[in-house]
Write a protein that binds this DNA or RNA. Structure first.
Lengths: 245, 245
DNA sequence: CGATACTGCGAACACTGTTCTCGGTTATGG
DNA sequence: CCATAACCGAGAACAGTGTTCGCAGTATCG
């Protein structure tokens, strides 16, 4: 009864909609081409540069034509995210040590984030998980298989935490890497101004890069890769023994 | 020489621009009113519902008028985020136990996230830290003061990780809470279809809610608040001893 | 051989953020 | 004390956005 009003937009998710129908002429373009064009635009100008019109122009056609391949701009973003996920190498053999395996996975994921900064701009509101995202999850769960302290859903949550951590650390890395845009230079200028105004001594010390607490030296840790150290710490907490309440 | 081309938009960050000039008539509205209207719209219809025109309509004026109070839509979002941050109670006394204090702070932060789901939609691309955000940081650093194992910048990173964790857990909580919108019901339907197609046994088990590993029962943990348990685990890793490489 | 379902796409609609401009209002410097 | 410079409100307009409609053409099924 309710399947007549909405028929074309019913299989709401891109991956379940067939790439092309069986009746008409062969499509001149493919979803892969749309995705590639969109990713190219995003790599160059951020996620905001990915507009239906721009992608269409890139493919030498009009905006309306894209709607034969995709239900809307959101689908385009879904395709982009999955394409980026596909760049994470999942053929690396597992060693059986969950921490080591997940550290490696995290590092490879970060490389993708650094290559496609727009990944940080896509809102994590609704989890967008395509075929490659599913493979990614399965791989992470395989790495987590030796861990007996976590239930199935608990492992999924751990993977989610790990992904959020990688995203956050990638954002930090990107900020230090690129020359500061107008926005963030203004932000740090504001922070400097605020701490100079006084009233936030600990923040002032932290921003000055000073050591912890009361400036007591001696407990220096030379540190390897800070990214890896951070991931190790969090993983230790995630997979380790139950902490006391 | 370069200070003549751009003069009005020079103090790029909202907080450094004076609320009103000293010469003309008194403004009929205030930034506070703009912010309140914007937050109201976002609470009701998500961040996308916050358009310059809608906010103007809410205040009974035209779109152009808002630009007397704000340099653009981005500034509006900055104000909104800071207003939300202000809802986190920072007058709770610290106990001296960093873990307990940060768990409490995280819980209060999550409450704000649940009250203002649009916070998850604002891209963490450029860190938007206003006056209340600065106070928030200072408070978190005060809670971290007893921790000697972390340097100043290290503590800031720990706070960032904690915030990312809270955001992620809030997203999960929100998904279970509200009735699924079209998007996410389609997503989970897709996931179900994929695991039904086979080839992802571990994901299938995890989604089925089954226990870990090979389904070996007995190691049940009743768990208190899952949010608090998760935060405790991560904090234990963040503040605990250096894990072995 | 229709009938049917598809593809491509020009045109249009309802939005969006932002700027220009102008008339009226206020405080300040001479 | 007044002229001038700085400011406020807001209508009009511009460029750009996502999306829908409708129509000509084309390939496949019954």
């Amino acid at each position: 009864m309710a399947d007549k009003a909405d028929r074309a937009t019913e299989a709401v998710v891109v991956w379940e909609r067939p790439e092309r129908g069986a009746r008409g002429p062969a499509p001149e373009r493919s979803r892969e081409q749309l995705t590639a064009a969109a990713v190219g635009l995003a790599d160059a100008g951020g996620l905001a540069a990915v507009s239906v019109r721009q992608v269409a122009r890139e493919l030498g056609t009009g905006p309306a034509s894209l709607y034969r391949y995709v239900a809307g701009r959101d689908d385009l973003v879904d395709l982009m995210v999955d394409a980026a996920t596909a760049e994470v190498d999942l053929d690396v053999e597992l060693t059986g040590d969950p921490v080591a395996d997940l550290v490696g996975l995290a590092a490879r994921t970060q490389q993708v984030h650094l290559r496609h900064p727009w990944l940080l701009e896509v809102a994590p509101e609704a989890l967008r998980t395509g075929p490659r995202g599913v493979d990614y999850l399965e791989y992470a769960l395989r790495a987590l298989e030796p861990v007996a302290a976590l239930t199935g859903p608990g492992k999924l949550e751990a993977v989610a935490v790990l992904n959020a951590l990688v995203a956050m650390l990638s954002a930090v890395e990107l900020r230090t890497r690129r020359s500061p845009t107008g926005r963030q230079s203004a932000q740090s200028a504001y922070l400097d101004a605020v701490v100079a105004r006084g009233g936030h001594p600990l923040l002032a010390a932290a921003l000055a890069g000073g050591a912890a607490g009361a400036g007591r030296p001696g407990t220096e840790s030379p540190a390897g890769d800070p990214f890896e150290r951070m991931v190790r710490r969090v993983l230790a907490g995630l997979l380790g023994p139950e902490p006391p309440a």
